[in-house]
Every structure is written in C-alpha cells, then in structure tokens.
Design a protein around this nucleic acid. Structure first.
Length: 376
RNA sequence: UUAACCUACUGUUACC
C-alpha cells in the first residue's frame, strides 16, 4: 500500500495525466481499490495533473469520503482556477475544519478576490499561522505593500513564511534596503529567505552581490541554482549561465527552460532549439518559450505549427500567439486565436486590443476596449 | 492499531 501511495504522489508531482490514469487503473484492479487513503491520493493526483474532471469523478466514485477527501477536492478545484466550483464544494461539504476554511480562503486570495477573502477570513471560527499567512500572501504578492505591512504588524503569530512574504513584497517593489533590513530583523532564515536575497540583488542589477549571497547561503537547492542562472542570463551572461547549468547537481525542467530562454533571449535560436530538443521532459513553459521565440523572429508558420503540436496549452501560450499575430499585422488571426481560448486574462485582452489598434482599426479597438472585464 | 500514512500558507523559468 505504501508503494502505491508513493507512486500516486510522484505522479501528482510529474503531472502527466495519461500516466496518472494508468496508475489509477492499477489501484482499481488491486485489493486496495476501496481504500480511502489511496482514494484521497487519487483525487489529489488528478488535481495536480490539472484534471478536475477526473478528480471529481474519483471523488464521486469513492466509498465514504472523509474530511480529507472533501478538502482535497476543494483544493483541486482551487489550484486549477475553478473558484466557483471550489466554493460550491465548500458550501456543500458536511463539516469544515481549519484546513477547509484556509483552503477556500486561499482560493479567493489567489484569484484576486480579496473582498471575498476578507469575508471568509472573518467568518472563520479560528485562525492559525497558515490562515494569517494566506491572507498576507494575497496582499504581499499583489503589490499591496502598505496593506501587507499593516497586516504583518498586527498578526498574532508570525513564522519564517510570514517574514519571507514580507521580503517578497519588497523584492517585487525593488526595495533592496528594506529587504536587507527585514533580513537582519527576522529571527530565522531559510533557503527561501536566501533565494529572495539572491533575487533582489539580481533584479536591481547587483549581479556580484547576487552571486555573493548565493555563495554564502548555507544550502542550495534547484530553486536557488535556477535563480542565479536566470540572473546571469538576464544580464546577458549566457555562457556563465550554462556553466552553472553544468555545475548544478541536478537539472530540473526549470533549469532546462532557463537555458532555452537564455539562448533565445540572447539571439541564439539554434542553441535554443537544440536545448529544447535535448531536454528530457518539456513542459508548457518550454513549449511556450519556443513558440514565442519563433513568433518574435517573424517565423509565424513554425510558431503556429509548434503551437498546434503542444501537449498542453495555457493562457500564456495563447497570449503568445495572439501577440505574435498582432505584431505581424494579422488581427483576424489574433481574434480567431482569442476565441479559441478556454480562459482569458487581461494580457489576452490587451494583446487582442493591440492587434487591432496597431493596424488602425479604431472602431474595433474601441469596441474591444469597452468590453475588457478588468482593464489595466 | 483509541496508532500511522493523505489535504491549506512563502522563493526560480514562458506571453504583457
């Protein structure tokens, strides 16, 4: 049973739906097909693979779901952006614990529904550090620095995550001094703290200090290595980035994507493509990167071809194509792509608007502008 | 084995 469990967990991490279904079938054939623990892991696995449909089917077919099952289903919807389904699950579940409350709170927070989030927060019967951090994250990661500070100062319990969130808010604002002040003030540092330091120096152009922070941090993981690689790449030091890539103990999919992006952004399409083809498991980032790369080089046909071949697409991949059509003066094509999208965000709307505006289609542009749900 | 395992919060890459 433990081996099945770890199989289900690892499948959730690698997010491959067809493999996930095979493992599910294997569990169904065995004697543990009615085991609730495994049943819960199956729901979770599907959620992590991006299939809320399979997650909810697994939930429906399980015998006697427990509170874990409900919470996992709720989280599966929330993590895939299906906020109203998540809310429906929340409202229909028999009992709530602090995890359920925090999960729905986080769902609203991460979908920029701060008003709803606040209502939930006030309705909650109890709070712990996770719920406080969840609300803090909503402010800290969306550029609401002042509100973050106020919340942070009034939080009854803070842990290293809370401090890291405040760091992150200031990293995003580019406040190096404030980041360093917080760094010295906080009671503990962890690997996330240190990676934020590497980042804040990188984004403010202090590459040397970024490297120094990387060198003195007590431990490094793939996030920190990838961060430093990105820092070098974004300052034009591609070969240094490649050295780090070769030097790091393990290349994950992000490391590969950083290198693909590094080559492309520094004008070496050939190496970008070669790296893409060599990478063991490309994901939606890798694909979108090379689609965008071809599009930005004016090779729309290849971009289109690759786009249709993508194993999975998301909003960003569609946005890249819309932008490409717009820049090539093909607003009709942009519109066609736009209408194919299952979901859209403000970037999608702006890209469509741009496509028409650039060609001087004043009326269409205006029409689009007036129907953008959340213009910026 | 009135035990254990599964669920909620922070850092890296693609479109703008």
């Amino acid at each position: 049973i433990q081996s099945l469990a770890s199989l289900l967990k690892s499948q959730g991490i690698s997010r491959n739906l067809s493999e996930a279904k095979k493992i599910h079938a294997r569990v169904l054939c065995g004697k543990y097909c009615r085991n609730r623990y495994l049943g819960n892991l199956i729901i979770e696995m599907y959620g992590k693979c991006g299939s809320t449909k399979d997650a909810s089917q697994a939930f429906e077919s399980m015998h006697g779901p427990n509170l874990f099952s409900w919470n996992i289903l709720l989280t599966a919807y929330a993590h895939n952006g299906h906020i109203s389904d998540a809310n429906r699950v929340f409202e229909s579940m028999p009992v709530w614990d602090i995890v359920s409350w925090t999960a729905i709170l986080t769902a609203f927070c991460q979908n920029d529904q701060l008003d709803q989030a606040k209502i939930i927060f006030e309705r909650m019967p109890e709070w712990n550090s996770v719920s406080w951090n969840s609300l803090l994250a909503a402010y800290a990661l969306s550029g609401h620095l002042e509100e973050s500070k106020q919340l942070f100062d009034n939080m009854p319990e803070k842990n290293v995550l809370s401090w890291n969130l405040m760091l992150q808010a200031n990293v995003q604002a580019g406040n190096v001094e404030e980041v360093l002040l917080l760094f010295h003030e906080m009671p503990q540092h962890d690997i996330v703290t240190w990676t934020s330091i590497v980042r804040v120096y990188a984004v403010t152009g202090h590459l040397e200090k970024s490297k120094q922070a990387f060198d003195v941090m007590p431990e490094r993981d793939s996030f920190s290595w990838n961060m430093l690689m990105t820092a070098y790449s974004q300052h034009g030091y591609v070969s240094e980035a490649k050295e780090l890539f070769d030097q790091m103990p393990e290349n994950d999919v992000t490391s590969w994507n950083v290198m693909i992006t590094a080559y492309f952004q520094n004008g070496d399409m050939e190496k970008a493509m070669k790296t893409f083809e060599e990478s063991p498991d490309g994901d939606v980032f890798s694909w979108t990167c090379i689609v965008a790369a071809h599009a930005q080089n004016g090779d729309l046909e290849t971009a289109q071809e690759l786009f249709e071949k993508m194993p999975q697409r998301n909003i960003v991949s569609f946005n890249a194509m819309i932008t490409a059509y717009g820049e090539s003066g093909l607003p009709e094509k942009a519109k066609e792509m736009f209408s194919r999208m299952p979901q859209r965000n403000t970037v999608s709307w702006n890209a469509l608007l741009q496509a028409y505006a650039q060609r001087g289609h004043l009326e269409e542009s205006y029409e689009i502008f007036t129907v953008i749900p959340e213009p910026n």
